[in-house]
Simulated assay, not measured.
Amino acid sequence: MVATLQVYLFLAFYLAIFALSVWALVDLLRRPAAAFPSAGKRTKNFWGAILGVGTAVAFMAIPPPLGLGFLSFLGLLAAVGAIVYLVDVRPAVAPYSRRRGPRGPSSPGGW
């Protein structure tokens, strides 16, 4: 009983790391490349490599029914890369990547 609970907790933990990594990678892909140097952060390619490798490692760390089940100790490094991006880089890049359409608050028509 306890062993089964541990397996499910382990599975939930690594699924959460994988979901966090995917979220960070998708957010990165939606940001323009020029926003990163403007915010004083590393380039989009740098973060793409970190998050891409991290997402692949996070998938490989998921236990066998759903993933491959190896490199589980590196799953924590994938979580660190995703957390650093989401907590530090994403808020810094966000103001430089907002879309300003013709109906925005700064439009001359004031729609």
Results as ranks from 00 to 15, higher is better:
residue 101 G to R: 05
residue 4 T to F: 05
residue 78 A to V: 06
residue 97 S to L: 00
residue 12 A to T: 10
residue 94 A to V: 02
residue 52 G to F: 07
residue 63 P to F: 10
residue 13 F to H: 07
residue 105 P to D: 11
residue 25 L to Q: 13
residue 108 P to S: 11
residue 39 A to S: 13
residue 65 P to N: 03
residue 54 G to F: 02
residue 93 V to Q: 00
residue 72 S to M: 10
residue 35 A to H: 04
residue 17 I to H: 00
residue 46 F to K: 09
residue 6 Q to N: 09
residue 102 P to G: 15
residue 47 W to C: 11
residue 79 A to L: 15
residue 111 W to S: 10
residue 32 P to N: 02
residue 55 T to W: 05
residue 96 Y to I: 03
residue 14 Y to I: 06
residue 20 L to G: 08
residue 63 P to D: 00
residue 28 L to K: 06
residue 79 A to F: 11
residue 7 V to K: 05
residue 87 V to W: 07
residue 1 M to A: 14
residue 83 I to M: 14
residue 49 A to Y: 14
residue 10 F to Y: 04
residue 36 F to E: 06
residue 36 F to S: 05
residue 5 L to R: 07
residue 19 A to Q: 06
residue 26 V to K: 10
residue 39 A to K: 14
residue 67 G to C: 08
residue 53 V to K: 03
residue 51 L to V: 02
residue 49 A to L: 15
residue 46 F to D: 11
residue 47 W to Y: 15
residue 35 A to G: 04
residue 6 Q to R: 12
residue 18 F to D: 02
residue 47 W to H: 15
residue 40 G to M: 06
residue 51 L to H: 09
residue 86 L to I: 13
residue 27 D to P: 08
residue 93 V to P: 00
residue 58 A to D: 01
residue 109 G to H: 10
residue 89 V to D: 02
residue 36 F to Q: 06
residue 72 S to P: 01
residue 60 M to C: 15
residue 99 R to E: 14
residue 70 F to N: 08
residue 67 G to V: 12
residue 82 A to H: 00
residue 32 P to F: 01
residue 8 Y to E: 11
residue 66 L to K: 07
residue 74 L to F: 14
residue 80 V to N: 02
residue 26 V to C: 09
residue 4 T to D: 05
residue 45 N to M: 08
residue 98 R to S: 07
residue 44 K to L: 08
residue 90 R to F: 13
residue 3 A to R: 11
residue 96 Y to H: 09
residue 110 G to V: 02
residue 8 Y to L: 12
